[in-house]
Every structure is written in structure tokens, then in C-alpha cells.
Amino acid sequence: MRVEALSLEQLRERSSEKWREYPADVLPLFVAETDFPLAPEITRALERAVAIGDTGYVASRTPLPEAYAAFASRRLGWTPDPARMRPTADVSMGIVEILRRVIAPGDRVIVTPPVYPPFYELIAEAGAVVERVPLRDTGAGWELDLDGIRLALDAGARAVLLCNPHNPTGTVHSTASLTALAELAVQFGAAVVSDEIHAPLAQPGTGFVPFLSVSDAAREVGYAVVSASKAFNLAGLKCALMVTASEATARLVRALPVEVEWRTGQFGMLAAVAAFSPASDPWLDGLLVALDENRRLLAALLAEHLPEARYRIPDAGYLAWIDLTALEWGDNPSRRILRDAKVALHFGPAFGAEGAGHVRLNFGTSPTILTEAIERIAALR
């Protein structure tokens, strides 16, 4: 059963970044927030917390690790050990805190652009230097450039910051690629930090595999940072989990300062437990149906109205990576689109040099809004 997005009138009542950054005549399809109502189980959990004033500090022991382990078992075919997890405020904080402890200041950390723009800043915040190894375009999709990663590790890079599934391309990395990456990390004594925030949004049949599940090597070198925030639209509530799968990596995460854990939001923890519960599975299934329809609708709209655009239907998530180079609207076509079409998209060049001429579009909205956005953009031709 499809989850239906809220109407534009309802959405404009929201006060989050997506609905306050631009004037009311702009359709916002930029930041990674979705336009759907909360899963009912989350609404109930938050309403109960407000009713009883459950608004204090997050507890040192919560049901979150067990809830995530059960969710991962049901939805991802993987059963991580709750004893080897630790909460934190968000995925970005988890990435920075782990990187700080697996590299030395000035070390290089590999990213695979085009990639989520904050990765560049998070690596700098951790005291490291970005090492770019772009994804390989196979003509049919994208994949990790394992030869390039090998060269970078051989030249001294000490960690890989992996995006799995990948943002902005929506690529689900193959088991073979992840296994090979883990073996390279073992060979060169490097760590792999895997951002798996979009994992619950992998479409059925795409073969998503958590990095820590692929091999003993991955469990030895890997750290995953996960959250309910993208799938269930909970970013403002501040909750994520750092997940490990070996005693050595778990020991490193346990040794992080207590403040890393205490910055977790109480509402974020309560909402995440509700999101990961079996009661929220039907809602998530309905969301995946809506996103599947929208990712295909976008392909049809572009073919009809903007045939010059190049777009591959993503394996996961609600973000579309669209190449508008053929339209000759410059390296950053989103600027013209915002100014003249009143549609806000994410700037392609922010994802790396590979983003020149590209935009990222958030299709986690209604078919009506998505259709109007593409029609507005097409009118610029």
C-alpha cells in the first residue's frame, strides 16, 4: 500500500529547512527531507513522551541497539550484535568521532565522488585530508574504482569513507566490490567507515548488503554509522548508531567520550526505536512503493519534457542524480533553475568536480509536485 505525501498547503506549514530556506513561490526539492507524514508508530511514541514529559537526557541504556539489530535482521538479512553498538547524535558526528581515532592528523581519507558534500567537511573536521577516487561510470551505472582505491591506499591513505547506498547516485554497491574493498583495507592497514543512512530505502531486489556483513575482513576493518533519520524523516530529532562487528573495533567505539553518546536526542532515540519496530514495517513498505513509483515517474517526465537530461533510476533512496550538461546551462545549472523556474535543487558541483552540469533532485514528494517541478524546468528550454 502506497504512503501518500502531504499536500503543498500542509507542507508549507512546516518550519524545517526544506520549507523555510526559499520563498513560497519556490518548489523545494533540494535538501534530503521527505514530504510524507510520520509513521503512525513514531507519532504515537512522541505523543506519549510529550504527554508524560519524557523530555530529559537520553539514558545510558536504551532499547535502541536491540531494536536496530532486529530491524537489520528482518529488513537487511544481517544480525549485528547490540553489544557492539553505541548511539550518537547523527551520522555526521559518528563519522567524525570514528575517523579521529582511526587516523592521525594530516592522514588522507578516501572519498568516492560525486559524493555527499559534507563528507569533505567531516574529513577536515577529523583532522584529515580528502583523497578523491571517483566512482567509475560503467555506462549502465556506477561502481567503486577498486584499482584507484588500491593506488591511494598504497600511496598512504589510511581510511575510506564509504557511502553505501551511495548519495547522490543511489548506487547499491555490490557484494563483490565491498568484499574486495575490505580485503584492500586489511592489506594496507586502513579502516573503512560506512555511512549506511540510506540502507532502509534500498528498493527490494537491488541486493543491498551492509558492509560489515560481507566478510571477516570487513568486520575487522569496518565501522558502520546508521540512522532512521532519512527513511523516516527524523533528522531534526538527532539520533544515530555507530555499529561495529569485532572486539577491536567495538573497543575503539566504547572508548569514545561519553559526550558523544549524551548528545543523542531523547526524542530521536524514542522515534528511532518506534521506526525500527515491526509495527513500522508496513509504513516503510508503503514508502518504498511511493518512491519506486516516483523514481519511474521522474524518468518518464524527463523523457517527455527534458529529453537532453541523462538520469539513471537509482537503486535506493529518494535522490536523483541528473546530468543536464547537454542543455548548456553552465557548471551549476541549479542556479538558473532556481532563478527562472523557481525550483530549488541541490548544486551538482558541491558533490565534487564530477558534478559540473549536474543537479540532485529530491523525489521524496508527491507526483503532483514532482510533475510541476519538471514542467517548470522544461519551460526554460
Rank of each mutant, 00 (worst) to 15 (best):
S177N: 13
V193M: 02
V96H: 00
L144K: 05
G139E: 12
E183M: 05
E196D: 05
A182H: 03
N164D: 15
L181P: 04
G189E: 10
F119D: 11
T175Y: 14
P168K: 11
A199L: 06
L161W: 03
D195R: 12
T171S: 10
T175A: 15
G94A: 10
G148Y: 04
D154P: 00
H166D: 15
A180K: 08
I103N: 10
G148K: 06
V193G: 00
L99S: 06
D107T: 11
V109D: 01
I98A: 04
R158I: 02
I197H: 12
D145N: 13
A124C: 03
H173N: 12
C163H: 11
V102Y: 05
T179E: 13
F119R: 02
G156F: 10
Y120P: 04
A159H: 05
Y116P: 02
H173G: 06
E196P: 05
L184K: 03
T175P: 04
V192Y: 01
V193Y: 01
E196I: 09
N167S: 06
D195M: 08
G127L: 09
V186I: 14
Q203P: 00
V160R: 00
A126F: 03
V186E: 15
C163I: 10
S194M: 00
S92A: 15
R136H: 03
V160F: 07
Y116D: 12
D137E: 12
E183H: 14
D154I: 05
D90T: 03
A159W: 01
V129F: 10
R101D: 07
L184G: 01
T206F: 00
A180F: 03
G170A: 13
G141S: 08
R158F: 06
H166W: 12
A190Y: 11
G94M: 08
T88M: 00
L99W: 00
L181R: 06
G94V: 09
A124G: 03
G207I: 11
G127K: 13
S174L: 08
H173T: 04
T171G: 04
E183Q: 14
V96E: 02
P200I: 11
V115K: 09
P113F: 02
T112G: 02
G127C: 12
R101T: 08
G189N: 07
G141T: 03
G205I: 10
E125G: 06
H166N: 12
T175W: 13
L99I: 01
E183A: 15
R101Y: 09
T206E: 10
E125W: 01
A191Y: 10
R132L: 07
H173E: 09
A128F: 13
Y120V: 12
D90E: 11
E97I: 06
A176R: 14
P117T: 09
G94K: 07
V109N: 07
T88Y: 00
T175R: 15
A104E: 15
R136A: 08
I123H: 06
M93F: 07
A140E: 15
A202P: 04
A126T: 14
G141Q: 00
L99A: 01
E143T: 11
T179Y: 03
L122E: 08
A199H: 05
G139A: 15
V109H: 05
Q187F: 02
T171Y: 06
A191C: 06
Y116Q: 13
A89M: 14
L151Y: 13
A157G: 05
I149F: 04
G205T: 09
P117M: 01
R101E: 14
P114N: 08
V91E: 05
H173R: 09
D147K: 10
